[in-house]
Write a protein that binds this DNA or RNA. Structure first.
Length: 716
RNA sequence: GGGCGAUUAGCUCAGUUGGUAGAGCAGUUCGUUUACACCGAAAAGGUCGGGGGUUCAAAUCCCUCAUCGCCCACCA
């Protein structure tokens, strides 16, 4: 027996060595697997954002995906787990801007190329740091196939999709209302905004013969349309399109009455003026009735000249106070409701209110793509492991809105298009050859915007496999499982399905496993400011990666948030040590100078007759069924329970008596049974606790032994 | 406003198709001459949120109420 068993299990000493041992073996790469590995099993790793350290959520996905991959590899599949790193456009830019702020710098004062190069350097250094962290978590992924979202090959595929969308008339450039963040100076998709409820004052103003209500007086300068419901009895004497002369903020104006049934007669006075440039509802009314619209607030949140001299250049908050005061002085303020509850949109990064603005952007028509995605799920081509997410998925797709994919940030994939300087026409130009507007023949300039990072991420499964001609695409697509957090079901998963089907005519993955969020011991969200963050790398250092991984898997049902505490991780460190000592006991008691043949007649006979081995076979069957059905939380608990409370507490305890009583004729048989149980247990545990099981495996005196990572899962 | 989920031992959570309630941690009593004190043995602890229904049988299926959480949403 190796002397190392005389000490407690030492994960720090073991893990790095074992990982190198695996990497050298080459078995992370499906091409190097032995002959018996034929059918493919593929998982594309959700590429972590290369802008910081890994958190518990990353540890969870590594634990889950690695266990699936290791299990399938042992089952004889040709397993590919393809790792990657995400440049994470807006996310990274926000992180980097914070860094710049700390240094007293601003991106708006930097040369774009210089800024880009700086962020690239930052990202690449984070990327290699992050790769080391993924390794230390024991990920058996194929590093030779690692991809990065900004590689030229990936860009080329993304550009191809952009072009195809344009050719198929699913892409358009439109002057539409967008979610504008005044801090970040970019538009955002619907998903990148959040709604919060807040209380504001609600003002009623006299507007000609009407009283109109608003929470945003500062937008009202240019309002020249008043809208009521067509069925509203109170306003039936006025005709649609009728004009009124009235006194307003900066003097007399002419207003026009519009009738539209979006108006809620019950709300306020049933009459409102509209500001199409700064409100999505108003914008749609204006579109329907072909009305004019003007910009009142600039992209930095300041009033434009249209507001009049005394308001120009003022920020929103100041302008609001001033305009109320002025209208009040003019006798046009009717009343003010305090504490009006309503919800507003905020930027999901800085929590500042979104200022809707009209801006020319690239949009994708989502409805046709959504239709096919829903069909694929309905026809069971794509299966949600967590069924309730299927409902959420449908609900979102049924109500999908067009997707703005233009971002006014430098960190991302440039949009390959030209914009006409005169007529603002957008022209897709992959080869950068167009110099004149095909519509008006005027000069064009390069679109300065970049893609929403999710537009390229949405193509990740087929892009990483080298669509359309790569061997990997032919061999490994569609992939088997998409495993990621439920928080990015819409951001990422739904888009991968839509874009995957659209581009390849084939689903990108067959099964979707969504994990929940990892919270602290009390169920609170982990955050740096609360100081309750559990850093997975620290935990792995302190208790061992196997212990960390077990703590993330046992009792963690798919799709549900889980709470993680150091106590739980510590418990599995003890378990690792228990397994270590079980192995020590067995190695001490068997003659390990000669190798044991697992296919011997004696052992084969025992497998059929010994009641303990029969029980273990039943358990193996049961666990295998759990593994096939994604019940890892059950499989892991069952094997834990068996090892500790059956194998150690009962079987080994009982064997001591027999071993100590040297006269027992069956002593060799008992030792054989113990070894048989141990080697099976190591196999069952390997997907969950890869390091310690491989480490013990190397010490077992077994004939024709291979690496545990490619040993055959026990077939019963 | 719509949708989804949760409510089980002091705490944090499991419980796969309905068949006499489980784990970790905390806590009680006892136990160390060699696998392991990162341990063992024993005991203790829950009318499974309330109410109703289906069933021979319900934590599990159905209805209803309460509380909490999450997601989606263009009432100015």
């Amino acid at each position: 027996m190796n002397d190392k068993f005389l000490k407690p299990y030492n994960p720090q000493e073991t893990e790095k060595r074992i990982y190198e041992f695996w990497e050298k073996s080459g078995f992370f790469n499906p091409d190097n697997l032995p002959q018996r590995h034929k059918d493919p099993f593929t998982i594309i790793m959700p590429p972590p954002n290369a802008n910081g350290s890994l958190h518990s959520g990353h540890a969870l996905f590594v634990a889950l995906e690695d266990l699936m991959v290791r299990y399938k590899r042992m089952r004889g599949y040709k397993t590919l787990w393809l790792p990657g790193a995400d440049h994470a456009g807006f996310e990274t830019q926000v992180v980097y801007e914070k860094k710049l702020e700390k240094e007293g710098r601003s991106r708006f004062k930097m040369d774009p190329k210089e800024l880009y190069d700086e962020i690239m350097e930052f990202t690449l250094s984070n990327k290699s740091f992050m790769e080391g962290q993924v390794r230390s978590l024991g990920a058996s992924c194929d590093w030779s196939r690692e991809r990065f979202t900004l590689e030229p090959e990936i860009k080329k595929i993304v550009y191809g999709t952009f072009k195809k969308l344009s050719d198929d008339k699913l892409l358009y450039r439109g002057k539409r209302i967008v979610n504008w963040c005044s801090k970040h100076q970019t538009s955002l998709s619907e998903l990148e905004t959040e709604s919060i409820e807040q209380e504001d004052k609600f003002y009623y103003f006299q507007y000609g013969p009407f009283q109109i209500g608003t929470t945003r007086p500062e937008t009202k300068f240019g309002d020249k349309y008043v809208v009521v419901h067509p069925d509203d009895e109170r306003y039936k004497q006025y005709k649609d399109g009728q004009k009124f002369d009235l006194e307003w903020v900066n003097g007399p104006i002419t207003a026009t009455l519009i009738k539209d049934d979006v108006i809620d007669m019950e709300f306020g006075t049933g009459a409102m003026t509209i500001t199409p440039w700064h409100d999505p509802v108003d914008f749609e009314i204006a579109q329907r009735h072909n009305l004019e619209y003007e910009q009142i607030i600039d992209f930095h949140g300041k009033m434009l000249p249209i507001a009049g001299q005394e308001f120009e250049g003022k920020n929103i908050k100041d302008a609001r106070e001033l305009i109320i005061k002025k209208l009040d002085e003019k006798g046009l303020l009717v009343k003010t409701d305090e504490n009006f509850k309503h919800s507003i949109k905020i930027c999901y990064k800085c929590n500042r209110p979104i200022e809707p603005q009209i801006k020319a952007q690239w949009f994708i028509k989502m409805q046709p793509l959504a239709q096919k995605a829903m069909e694929a799920v309905k026809n069971k081509k794509i299966n949600f492991v967590t069924e309730r997410h299927e409902k959420i998925f449908f609900h979102w797709l049924e109500n999908i809105r067009d997707w703005n994919i233009s971002r006014q940030i430098i960190w991302g994939i440039p949009i390959p298009a030209k914009i006409c300087k005169k007529c603002n026409e957008g022209i897709v130009d992959l080869d950068n050859i167009i110099s004149k507007c095909p519509k008006c023949n005027n000069e064009v300039e390069k679109d300065p915007d970049t893609f929403d990072t999710w537009f390229s991420s949405g193509q990740w499964p087929f892009a990483t496999l080298n669509y359309p001609d790569g061997d990997d695409f032919k061999n490994f697509y569609p992939t088997d499982v998409m495993e990621t957090g439920h928080d990015i079901l819409f951001f990422w998963v739904a888009r991968m399905i839509m874009l995957g089907i659209y581009r390849t005519n084939e689903i990108p993955f067959k099964n979707i496993y969504l994990h929940g969020m990892v919270r602290d011991a009390k169920g609170k969200k982990m955050s740096k400011s609360k100081g309750n963050v559990i850093n997975p790398l620290d935990m792995s250092e302190k208790f061992g990666t196997d212990a960390l991984r077990m703590s993330l898997i046992v009792g963690n049902t798919p799709g549900t948030d889980m709470n993680l505490s150091e106590d739980k991780i510590r418990a599995y460190k003890k378990f690792a040590n228990k397994l270590w000592n079980i192995s020590r006991f067995i190695l001490e008691n068997i003659d390990d100078s000669k190798e044991i043949d697992l296919q011997s007649d004696e052992l084969n006979k025992l497998r059929k007759t010994d009641s303990e081995l029969q029980k273990l076979q039943k358990l193996t069957l049961d666990i295998t069924d759990d593994m096939e059905n994604y019940r890892f939380y059950m499989a892991s608990e069952k094997i834990y329970h068996y090892v500790w409370h059956e194998f150690a507490d009962k079987i080994i305890e009982e064997s001591k008596l027999k071993i100590n009583n040297q006269k027992d004729e069956n002593i060799n048989e008992i030792k054989l049974i113990l070894l048989e149980i141990l080697q099976n247990v190591l196999k069952l545990l390997h997907p969950f606790m890869p390091f310690i099981t491989e480490e013990i495996w190397t010490e077992l005196p077994i004939k024709n032994k291979k690496y545990l990572i490619i040993e055959e899962w026990t077939n019963v």
